[in-house]
Every structure is written in structure tokens, then in C-alpha cells.
Amino acid sequence: MKICYVVSNIKSERCGTTLVLMKKAHERGHTVYVMNVGGFNFMQGSPICICCKMVPENFDYESEEDFLAKMKTDAIPWKMLDSAELDVMFLRNNPTEETIDRHWAERSGLAFARLVQQQGVLVLNDANSMSHSFIDKLYFEELPELIKPDSLITRDKTAIIDFWEKSGKKIVLKPLEGSGGKNIYLIDEHRSNFNQIIKTLTEKGYIIAQKFLPEVSEGDVRVLVMNGKILEKDGVPAIMRRVNKDESEFRSNVSLGGKTVKAELTPSMERIVALTAPKLIRDGFFFVGLDIVKDKLIEINVMSPGGLYYGGKLGLPEFGDTVIEAIERKVEYKALHKDNFSNKMLATMD
């Protein structure tokens, strides 16, 4: 199959899940392309053209890190490709990580991917659903209350104070549109720098306040979900615990110095996935990351979930094979059944 991975910018791409999946697809004999979110080209009456790099058929590399480094060089040229030639387009850019000077990049990838999807190319995750869940923290609020901590979304300072008091005077504040643990604050009984924090966050947009979960001191568990089920290989689930770098830091994001360790799958995690899965399947979300603290889901990542790269460093199975095998089946189903299945249905078809 011909598969193209969309990233924010190949030059700034780091070793992560996208790299793992690109490498696995190439190893399995597929034609693999990578493109920047700014590489779409539209001409009326013609299919979308994409500016991309193709992984050479006989690509010589020593490691995942070397694979990425060589893909970034000018030795592998950019080329224009008719997107209709693709079997799959895998959206792996994260709009919430774009900087102010790249505001154009936040929604353009999804908008163009919807057009590519209309041409008959399988887009993962479903581009229409991704557009609906662009603010993933709002999409998160559509999930059952039973599995989520108490929360409030507002730009009103008074409402936040009321919520803080009702929540035992200990809450977490973060921007509604954000990722990577940036601009997340713990507000306790002292309310240190409260006014400045509110000012900073409201300048960025809406604020989401969540009741503080004491168990977060032990870190959170990233659970990777594929086709509405916990991703696994040889009976081993794709889960890992992200541990805070020290006792003074309640955030466990790897980008902030947190580290990943092996985790045990619990009945609470399985129940959260079971209650989340029907919506993910209905909405065409093939590959999703759930962040869980004890028996509560604290965040959902539908845009560009990660974890495979760090899982590999922990000695977990090579889940990348399982993911690519699932995509191969979808391409086969699409070829055999022609247009009988929508993109959304194919996206989560096992």
C-alpha cells in the first residue's frame, strides 16, 4: 500500500510514535511518504497534490534515530504527488502544538485531509470527526461523567473561584486548547499567583478547571486504544505509566522531564476503555491515547497520540507491527467492498 504520514514539520519532528509507524510500514514493504502540514496544493478540478518525501525502497539506516535524521536531509528530495494515488493518509500533526506564527497550520491539515478523504483515500483518524473534536478537551467532556473528574470550562474568574471552593480548594487549571503539559497550574488553598494565572490563561482562550486527584502524584497511565480496544501484542497491552520528575512537579508529561515506566492493566482502566470505546468507534477514531489516573480519565488525545517509541525503550512488544497490520486489513476491506463502507466505518473496522 501507499501510505503518507502528515507531520507538522519534518525538520522539527522528534523520535516518537510517527517514526515508529513509518519505519514499520517501510519494513513491511509498503511505499511510505511523509509530508509537512503545509504541503497541500489545491487546483480546482484536480485532485489535491502533496509535496512529500518518499522513504527509499532500499533505505540504509542503523536505528530509528538514524532513520529520522536521514529523512530530514536534502539527500531525500521533495516531490509532488497526486494524493489520489495514496491508499492511506495518516494524520500525525498536532494542531495544539503550533506556535502563534503558524496559526495557519492549526486547522489547514484537517481541512485539506477532508478533501483528500472525499477523493476516496482512507484517512486516519476520520477527518470529519477530527474536525468535530478539534478541541479535544471539549470532546472529552462528551464522554460519560462516571469516568471523569469534576470539571468546569469557562473564562469567568468568579466561576473558577466557586468551583475551587466546591472542590476542596484544590484544582488544576489549564488552557482548553493546549498540550504537552504547558500552562498547567495547581491551585491549592493558598491560591498563589491566582490572578496572574487567570490573566495568562484567559489571554489564550477558555480555561478548563478539573478537581485535583491526589493519585496524580503517582503519575498517569497512557493507554493506547486502536479500533476501540486496548492495543496489544502477544497478550501484552500498550500501556505505560508516566512518572513525575520529582515530588514538586505534579505534571508527568515526558516533555517536562517525566519518565515512562511499565504499568499494570487494572479493571478500572479496562472499564474506562469499555465506556469510551462506543463513542470512539462511532466517530471513526482508529488510534487514540487515553490518560488515566486511578479510576478517572483525565485526558483524551485523538489528534496525534504517542507512546510507542517510549514503550519500545521499556522493552514492550513492537506494537507498530500490530498497528500497520490493522491498516493493511482496512485497505483490503476497502478494495474488496468498493464504496460500501464509509471512511468513518473503515477507520475503526477491526
Rank of each mutant, 00 (worst) to 15 (best):
K70T: 13
F134H: 14
L91A: 02
Q119R: 10
E97N: 07
E65N: 14
I100E: 12
K72Q: 14
R92N: 03
F67D: 01
E64M: 15
M71I: 11
L68D: 04
M130R: 02
L81S: 00
W78A: 03
Y61D: 13
E141V: 12
A69Y: 02
E97K: 06
R92C: 00
D126S: 10
S108P: 02
E106S: 06
G120F: 08
H132G: 03
F112K: 02
F67C: 09
G109T: 00
L81G: 00
S133H: 07
K72N: 09
R114W: 08
I76Y: 04
A111D: 12
E85W: 02
D66N: 13
N125T: 06
R102E: 09
T96S: 10
I76H: 03
D101A: 07
K137H: 07
M130N: 06
D60H: 14
Q117N: 12
F134A: 12
Y139G: 02
D60Y: 11
D74Y: 11
L124D: 03
D74G: 12
V88N: 01
M89R: 01
Y61C: 15
R114I: 11
S131G: 12
L143T: 00
D74P: 00
E145I: 13
M89N: 01
I100Q: 10
S63P: 09
N93Q: 09
K72T: 05
P95M: 00
P144R: 04
I135D: 08
E85G: 04
S133K: 08
K72L: 11
E145S: 13
L146Y: 10
K72M: 09
L124H: 04
N93Y: 02
L68A: 12
L115C: 03
N94V: 04
M89W: 02
Y61T: 15
R107V: 11
S83R: 05
L86K: 01
V123W: 04
L81V: 10
A111S: 11
A75E: 12
G109L: 01
L110R: 04
Q117P: 01
D82K: 08
E98N: 07
F90V: 04
A84H: 08
E98V: 05
A127R: 04
F134I: 15
S108N: 12
F134N: 11
L110A: 08
